[in-house]
């Protein structure tokens, strides 16, 4: 019972973190801030998915955790390239 309470509290903290990151996405003066916040949301999502899996007694969502990790990495890299060079995929001639 206590374990469950702890998990819920953890989830709430993660949700607060996501909300805080959302604030940064909305407010964020530069694009880089927003991308950073998005990346951070991704990490928070990984965490909350994990907590959820424990809460729901299932390991069906472990794939998702991996996937979010990969995607948020790829996404951040793509955004970074876009901000830096203006294109995501460069054409090699």
């Amino acid at each position: 019972m206590i374990f469950k309470t702890v998990l819920v509290i953890a989830l709430c903290i993660l949700a607060l973190a996501i909300l805080a990151n959302l604030y940064r996405i909305i407010k964020g003066p530069s694009s880089a801030d927003r991308v950073q916040a998005l990346d951070s949301i991704g990490i928070n999502l990984i965490a909350s998915t994990a907590v959820f899996s424990v809460l729901l007694h299932t390991h069906a969502f472990f794939d998702l955790i991996l996937l979010i990790g990969i995607l948020s990495f790829i996404g951040t890299v793509a955004f970074a390239r876009f901000i830096e060079r203006g294109v995501v995929i460069e054409r090699k001639r």
Partner: peptide
């Protein structure tokens, strides 16, 4: 970006609803 965030949260919804 906000649209992306929205989509990710939908994904979280799917998690909650198993």
């Amino acid at each position: 970006v906000a649209l992306g965030a929205l989509g990710y949260m939908v994904a979280m919804f799917f998690v909650i609803f198993r």
